[in-house]
Design a protein around this nucleic acid. Structure first.
Length: 311
DNA sequence: AAGACGAAAGTGGTTGA
DNA sequence: TCAACAACTTTCGTCTT
């Protein structure tokens, strides 16, 4: 399965849209972006290899370690604490034996329950990351954090789906490749409300830093789904940057911001796209787009230009 | 008929006492 | 914990093309 990925486009690769061979590589996002037209070539390039970034001391340790690393994607990890062994039991007085057998049984059940949870979580991670088009390199991290959550005993009583969704949400977001709560709750079949609560809870309990979402991180994905040109995407990006400089962004949801920016950009670039299509794709309402539209037009003094653009 | 506009009322989340 | 508040949604009537 790996060889197949490696065979794929080795030599001079051309952008299918404009034929350029110049590309921007975005490792954290696993995307290749054409320098000419902004087309996103591949949403799922393969893993990052040797050079990885380390955010935490654990990650740094993992990178610097030589030899084969402990992998969090394999079940069990080969280590386990056992309660007693049968040989030792022979020396025990008969009345104590029963106790030990019982303890062994509990231990076995705990282990089994833990393994069951782990392997269910693992397949769920795989499925989620695949359907959300996220880089597979995220798997190690989410599995590691899930184990940590199990160790800290903060999973009990919660649905695994919620925990899994929450971890994917947090990691995707922190790695600059965010998915919205709507997207994840839909893909994971959980309610947006529960997901929101769970991810905050998990972040607090595991001491995970939550970085603010950059609205511009949503641009390539949504623009591609809407079939917008690279010019429009670049324009939308610029609009968001300018709006940020003018302090027009604070307090507004990233979805609303990116929706408005895309709408304004598409008008300025002469691509017709309706508010409705953008709103549906992003999962917001037209009203929100209009609010943001007015805000941007006013704040950036684009009224005349926009007036000109719609004819 | 389709899209854009904005008012009005309701919802969930954040903040500060 | 409660109330106030802003952003956002839902719904709907109106205007423009």
């Amino acid at each position: 399965m790996n060889s197949e990925q490696e065979e794929q486009e080795r030599e001079p690769f051309r952008c299918p849209v404009c034929g350029s061979t110049e590309f921007e590589e975005d490792r954290t996002r696993a995307e290749l972006i054409c320098r000419e037209c902004g087309t996103v070539i591949e949403e799922e390039m393969i893993e990052e290899s040797a050079s990885r970034r380390a955010f935490t001391s654990e990650e740094r340790e993992k990178i610097e370690r030589t030899g084969s690393p402990v992998t969090y994607t394999q079940p069990g990890r080969g280590m386990r604490t056992e309660v007693g062994r049968s040989g030792e039991l022979r020396n025990l007085p008969p009345e104590k034996r029963g106790q030990y057998y019982r303890i062994q049984k509990w231990q076995r059940r705990l282990d089994e329950s833990r393994d069951r949870k782990m392997s269910y979580a693992r397949t769920e991670f795989e499925r989620l990351i695949a359907t959300l088009n996220l880089p597979r390199s995220m798997l190690e991290e989410v599995n590691r954090l899930y184990e940590k959550a199990l160790d800290k005993n903060i999973v009990k009583g919660r649905r695994i789906e919620n925990i899994v969704g929450a971890l994917v949400y947090i990691i995707a977001r922190n790695q600059g490749n965010p998915r919205s709560l709507d997207e994840i709750s839909e893909a994971a079949n959980i309610s947006k409300r529960d997901l929101g609560k769970t991810y905050r809870y998990i972040a607090r309990e595991l001491d995970l830093r939550i970085v603010p979402v950059n609205p511009e991180d949503f641009i390539p994905r949504y623009s591609n789904k809407l079939g917008l040109s690279g010019e429009t995407q670049a324009r939308a990006r610029k609009i968001i940057f300018d709006a940020r400089d003018e302090g027009l962004l604070s307090g507004r949801s990233p979805e609303g911001i990116v929706g408005s920016a895309i709408y304004v950009a598409s008008l300025l670039e002469g691509e017709d796209i309706t508010q409705r299509r953008i709103a549906d794709e992003i999962g917001i309402t037209e009203v929100t787009i209009r609010k943001g539209y007015n805000n941007i037009a006013e704040g950036l003094g684009l009224e005349d230009e926009l007036e000109e653009a719609r004819k």
